[in-house]
């Protein structure tokens, strides 16, 4: 336990349970258990256990080297012939369905667990909301989009290199993902997030533990006014951080779910550009 932890555990014990939150209020070492912790634990162990078993002992392309198998092994989704059926045939992607189901339940339980703990600590729900954004990404790519296209085969294979191959092929399947405007916005926010993170981390580290030299928040403000003309402030930077990261994920959801459902060719998507009303009838030389 941390030096101040006992007080907060007592405080948490006094929070009355409500629905599934606050049940099984037990700590195991540093971990809080709770009802949703049990759910996450059971399905997490089940799903990752099956994944390791498949990749290390069943995958037809496995080698004698477990590390290599971890990197190149995969559980492939059901073939297109299965459609959206729930197959129990282990040669036709049953274990893919099984692991995707377990993972979805685990991720959802993890979010509920964050809500549970936020409630016990009497803080806001921003952490589970941010986690919900990335959970929505998993659900969009593995469940919603396959259902929209009528086939589980649209999901990605569960494997380290295999999902990279899938991602690469996915980009070229719709001509080229570099032409996908939502991909562009998503990547911009992705790099933007890394940029904001680096600025924020560097800024705090540059001002930290210099109280004896009289360095305060004011120095940081003056530094940013000096070089950039604007200082967003202590609260503002964390709002920017939250929204940059969350919007990055939501934009990439859009870029996936529109591919194959609405747009087949992201280059042809831009055909409207030359016929935009503004310059449609303009006499070019």
């Amino acid at each position: 336990m941390l030096s101040f932890e006992a007080k907060y555990r007592q405080e948490a014990m006094a929070v009355p349970p409500r629905a599934s939150f606050g049940l099984l209020k037990i700590w195991i070492g540093r971990f809080y258990l709770g009802f949703w912790g049990v759910v996450a634990l059971v399905f997490g162990i089940l799903g990752s256990g099956v994944w390791f078993w498949q990749v290390l002992f069943v995958d037809p392309n496995r080698t004698n080297n477990p590390l290599l198998n971890f990197i190149r092994g995969q559980i492939a989704p059901p073939p297109p012939s299965v459609g959206l059926a729930i197959t129990f045939d282990p040669n036709k992607g049953f274990w893919w369905l099984f692991v995707v189901f377990c993972a979805t339940v685990t991720f959802f339980a993890w979010m509920m667990r964050q809500i549970d703990i936020s409630r016990l600590l009497k803080i806001g729900y921003q952490v589970p909301i941010a986690f919900g954004a990335v959970l929505s990404s998993w659900v969009t790519i593995q469940i919603v989009r396959p259902i929209l296209l009528g086939s589980w085969s649209e999901g990605f294979p569960l494997g380290v290199i295999a999902h990279l191959d899938w991602l690469s092929a996915f980009g070229y399947r719709y001509y080229n993902f570099f032409y996908n405007p939502f991909h562009a916005i998503g990547i911009t926010l992705l790099f933007g997030s890394a940029f904001v993170l680096s600025l924020h981390g560097a800024t705090i580290l540059s001002a930290a533990r210099k109280k004896s030299e009289g360095v305060t928040e004011e120095n940081v403000n003056r530094f940013y006014w000096d070089f950039f003309g604007y200082s967003i402030g202590e609260i503002g930077i964390h709002r920017l951080a939250f929204w940059a990261a969350v919007m990055c994920v939501l934009m990439s959801n859009l870029c996936f779910v529109l591919s194959g459902t609405v747009v087949q060719d992201w280059s042809a998507f831009w055909d409207f550009w030359n016929y935009a009303p503004f310059w449609k009838n303009f006499p070019f030389n």
Binding site: G124, A130, S193, L197, R239, L240, A241, A245, V246, V249
Partner: peptide, 18 residues
């Protein structure tokens, strides 16, 4: 980085009142 940014931003926003 995006994950850490989301975690840190959300954590601080959740504890603003403290």
């Amino acid at each position: 980085s995006t994950l850490i940014l989301a975690m840190h931003g959300a954590t601080i926003l959740a504890t603003l009142s403290y």
